[in-house]
Simulated assay, not measured.
Amino acid sequence: MSRPVTVVTGGSRGIGAAACLRLAADGHDVAVGYVRDEAAAEAVAAGVREAGGRAVTVRADTSAEADVDRLFDVAESTLGPVTGLVNNAAVTGPLGRLADSDTTDLRRVLDVNLLGALLCARRAAQLMTARGNGVIVNVSSGAATLGSPGEYVHYAATKAGIDALTVGLSKELGPDGVRVNAVAPGLVDTEMHAAMGAPDRVRQMAPAIPLRRAGRAEEIAAAIAWLMSPDASYTTGAVLRVAGGR
């Protein structure tokens, strides 16, 4: 049998990078989507190859339709028919109250987290429904149900949109043989906290988690890999919370 071919957006760091490596270990070939850090993306691709998979890196801003089309086109021309999508690319913008937020930051968060996910899901759906099979895993967040007051209400709102996308699209694509699920991570120890201006956030928040620690990117990747695997063949429309009990 041919190996699954999976597109991972935001694949150069954090959860996306861990997902690329875990999927490669599980037998996938991987298209590593990234927006800025080419060196990091190439390092992830090297890890995929070390695990026995084929890999290609593609610079793509998921909020741009042309970039999304190119991401999938390169994946298909280099690796073969795309069978999976990990819809992971996301940004938070600076931490703070909604009343103090900048409109430019709000637009960017909406464009990447929601429009970008919709564009990627749409392109995957076009390819997968024509072939009668495929798997999409969207990366949501525990923020979708907690609301994240005082931190990033706008980010939480986009992730609630991801949950709705997951449920609706799973019903739309189920008859075509395509499964759609989501993983909703809680506090995870990645570079994202420093990027949003709170490098100490993990240490400060961990005591409020029932398991008393932040998650690891590899733990989220394991949930993604399960949802993409044949073991989850009867699972669709699910939002799997991986948040240490919070």
Rank of each mutant, 00 (worst) to 15 (best):
E42G: 02
T92L: 14
T92C: 10
G53L: 09
A130H: 03
D61Q: 10
A184K: 08
Y155P: 05
G177R: 09
N113A: 03
E219H: 04
Y34K: 07
A144D: 05
V180R: 13
R179K: 09
M1Q: 13
V91C: 12
E65P: 00
R213G: 04
R246C: 04
G52Q: 13
A160Q: 13
V178S: 09
G33W: 12
G10Y: 09
G16F: 12
G96E: 10
T6N: 05
H154L: 06
G84T: 11
L118Y: 15
P149I: 05
L110G: 01
W226V: 03
A222M: 00
T83A: 12
D105C: 04
S141I: 01
Q126I: 02
S140W: 02
A184M: 06
V35T: 12
A243S: 12
A121G: 15
M228F: 07
V86A: 13
L71G: 03
L85P: 06
R22I: 03
T235P: 00
A238V: 08
T235G: 00
D26W: 03
N87I: 14
T166Q: 02
V183E: 09
M1A: 14
M196D: 06
P149N: 04
M205T: 09
T158W: 10
F72E: 02
A195R: 14
A238H: 11
T78L: 04
T145A: 15
V68N: 09
R213Q: 05
G177H: 08
M196S: 14
T129D: 01
N181Q: 12
A198L: 05
G244W: 09
R13E: 13
T158I: 11
Q126A: 13
T129Y: 02
A232E: 03
L240E: 01
S101R: 15
L21M: 00
N181R: 12
V137A: 06
F72M: 02
L118W: 15
V91D: 08
V135S: 13
V30F: 11
R107F: 04
T92F: 10
A60Y: 08
A124Y: 04
L106Q: 10
A46Y: 03
V5M: 08
G33N: 15
L169T: 08
D100R: 13
A164G: 12
G174N: 01
V91F: 06
P207I: 04
V86N: 12
A60E: 07
A143T: 08
P230Y: 04
M205V: 09
G150W: 01
A160R: 14
A223C: 00
M128E: 11
L119Y: 09
V48L: 09
D231M: 04
R131T: 10
I15N: 07
D100E: 15
T92D: 11
L118F: 15
Y155N: 06
L118P: 00
V7M: 08
S233G: 02
I224L: 09
Y155G: 08
L21R: 13
P149A: 03
G161P: 04
P210T: 07
S63G: 14
R3P: 03
I220P: 01
D26A: 15
C20W: 11
